[in-house]
Amino acid sequence: MTGAPGRRNLITDVPGLAVGQAEDAAARTGVTVILPGDRAVAGCDVRGGGPGTRETDALAPENLVEAVDAIVLAGGSVYGLAAADGVVAWLGAQGRGFGLVRRDGVPLSPVVPAAILYDLANGGDKAWGEEPPYRRLGREAAAGAGEAFALGTAGAGAGAMAGALKGGTGSASWILDDGVAVGALACVNSHGSVLAPGGRTFWAAPFEVGAEFGGLGPAGLSAAPGDWGPSKGSAVPRQNTTIACVATDASLTPAQAKRMAMMAQAGLARAIRPAFAPFDGDVVFALSTGGRPLTGGEAQLARIGSIAADCLARAVARGVYEAAAWPGAAAWRDLPA
């Protein structure tokens, strides 16, 4: 299969998408907003046993809403869902949203699905009383959205841990030979390990392009059943989640976007061992900005879904590769060569 990463190797290589991020350094947390220029068709697939989400039911293909105004990924566990409130308020002030009743004096209703990860126990200052920072962070992230954004200890991955290593926010893209763009963004806070046992090799190594996460190759990529590599020491419910978004500019229906999200989940299984555990909250959203017709029908959709899974595996590894350490949390770059 021919093609190449986009110019930025980010999800924003999909035309029509911007990404904004905001962090609270003292609280060791943050928010990532994926912002389409126009309302985008969306789907969602939830595989983790302990998810935290907002408005995912609205994305079911049989339901009324066929497009969204933004996707929000946030730290903060249940507090982080308030980040979507800030994004909704910002979008509404811009005159963006879904209009069931279009009449003067009736505001539009922005549709902003969201998913959260748990970073409450990472040592940051969470003494926020009745004013958690997430609504503010959501608004700041949306207002600052653009084509370039930071990877690693940034956005919703700012406070994340990936197994025993510092987690983070990663992204990757691929432009197919027919011009269709596919991209992925992941905020990695997994229980499972992103590395094979006994070394620095990412499980996602077979899918690496160039040296985007170290260029070590797949040598030594093996493990006995049940030998995951450096995962978290204890499996605490609701404290382990990888939340992600994949996107394409191929024009998809809501049902096709759902299928893309389902296929993309394979990328998490390629990059994290184990994935989809009862105590993980793994969630993948899919967006279609619709700039190109889906000329190849379901066969082309299958190809896009497969590439989305590859991009997501790469995004997971890039998020950990780019992450910076903090006290008590070693980064990939700290591991012995």
Rank of each mutant, 00 (worst) to 15 (best):
A4R: 14
P5S: 11
I11L: 11
D24K: 09
A25V: 11
A27G: 15
A27E: 05
A42I: 02
A42H: 08
R47M: 15
G49Y: 09
D57W: 13
A58M: 15
L59Q: 03
V65E: 07
V68L: 12
V68S: 06
D69A: 10
A74E: 04
V78T: 14
L81T: 03
A84I: 06
V88R: 01
L91Q: 06
Q94V: 06
F98A: 06
R102A: 12
D104F: 10
G105H: 11
G105P: 15
V106C: 08
P110N: 09
V111E: 02
P113W: 00
D119L: 04
A121C: 12
N122H: 13
A127Y: 07
A127W: 09
G129T: 13
Y134T: 06
G146A: 09
G146Q: 08
E147L: 15
E147S: 13
E147M: 12
G152L: 09
A154P: 10
G155D: 05
G159M: 03
A162R: 01
G163T: 05
G167C: 05
S171E: 03
S171F: 00
G179T: 01
V180S: 08
A184H: 05
A184E: 01
N189C: 11
S190V: 06
S193N: 10
L195K: 01
G199Q: 10
T201W: 00
F202R: 07
V209G: 06
G210T: 04
A211Y: 11
G217N: 07
W228M: 05
K232P: 00
T241I: 04
T242I: 09
C245T: 14
A247Y: 01
T248Q: 09
A250S: 08
A255D: 10
A257M: 09
R259K: 15
M260K: 00
L268S: 04
A269E: 07
A269H: 09
R270A: 11
A277T: 13
P278R: 12
F279P: 00
D280I: 03
G281I: 00
V283K: 00
S288H: 08
T289L: 07
R292M: 07
P293A: 15
L294P: 01
L301K: 01
A309S: 13
D310P: 03
R314I: 12
A317E: 04
R318H: 10
G319Q: 02
E322S: 14
E322H: 15
A325Q: 10
R333C: 10
P336N: 08
